[in-house]
């Protein structure tokens, strides 16, 4: 029986991992590791506890309808201590996985190779590359494109000019809130060239559903060319 549970847990864990986007950034790779550990732990715990519930329900079903009482016990202190202490150790382990990963994802490289100011507004985004004087602004009908160089660290400086939005690139496994009055700073280090959809994740009013954008990760050479073509001179 336990073998079957572990096999089931592993199957669920694998399905779960397959559903998670591949690591498109260096930070996403770290977070994907956390996802994998948590999904595996979740599947094992679910199989174990749900298995016990179903097992108890089947094994101890009432055979004699006239039964007034099953067994009469109502406590077992060593057992109760065990199911307090063991979960405490498990969540301690989960914290040990969480903490360094979060530190890594939150760390910001100075100075960054590139900086982009991202500003959310109802209902689109504005991307400003301050050094190259390039600004891209979208509308809810024409989503803007954020162009990033592959293999280099880009600092995102996230802000909002009206209500709270959230800048979410699912393939990067990351979102951050764009809050009026605050500039949120974090890094992307894209590892694969490609086009990734992104959308607003914090409900911001009528056309929240249309507040999308795309991220295009290109080679450094193409990135430099793109900046030249879109500079203020052009």
């Amino acid at each position: 029986m336990p073998v079957r549970f572990v096999a089931l847990a592993a199957a669920v864990a694998l399905t779960g991992c397959a559903a998670i986007p591949h690591d498109a950034t260096q930070q996403a790779g770290v977070m994907q590791g956390v996802w994998a550990i948590f999904i595996t732990a979740a599947a094992v715990v679910y199989a174990l506890v749900a298995g016990l519930i179903v097992w108890a329900a089947i094994a101890y079903r009432r055979r004699d309808p006239a039964t007034v009482q099953g067994a009469g016990f109502s406590q077992n202190v060593p057992l109760e201590l065990a199911w307090t202490v063991i979960p405490l150790i498990v969540v301690g382990g989960l914290f040990a996985v969480t903490y360094p990963a979060e530190r890594h994802v939150e760390s910001v490289v100075t100075p960054p190779a590139e900086t982009v100011q991202v500003t959310g507004f109802r209902w689109s985004w504005r991307f400003t590359y301050p050094r190259a004087h390039v600004t891209v602004e979208g509308t809810s009908d024409k989503p803007p494109e954020l162009v990033l160089p592959v293999g280099r660290t880009t600092e995102i400086r996230l802000a909002s000019s009206d209500v709270i939005h959230a800048f979410w690139v699912p393939a990067f496994l990351f979102k951050r809130d764009a809050i009026p009055g605050i500039v949120n700073v974090y890094d992307y280090t894209p590892l694969r060239e490609g086009v990734y959809p992104g959308r607003c994740a914090e409900y911001c009013g009528t056309y929240h559903a249309h507040m999308s954008f795309t991220v295009r990760v290109v080679s450094p050479e193409e990135f430099a060319r793109w900046l030249r073509d879109h500079g203020t001179a052009a």
């Binding site: 977070m31 996802w35 948590f38 979740a42 679910y46 996985v97 990963a101 994802v105 979102k175 994740a201």
Partner: peptide, 21 residues
């Protein structure tokens, strides 16, 4: 049980950054 276990997942910020909202 499913709600509780996925709650532990969401309590981990590196997971929450993707799953939140």
């Amino acid at each position: 049980l499913i709600g509780g276990i996925t709650g532990v997942m969401l309590a981990s910020p590196p997971i929450d950054y993707h799953a939140e909202d």
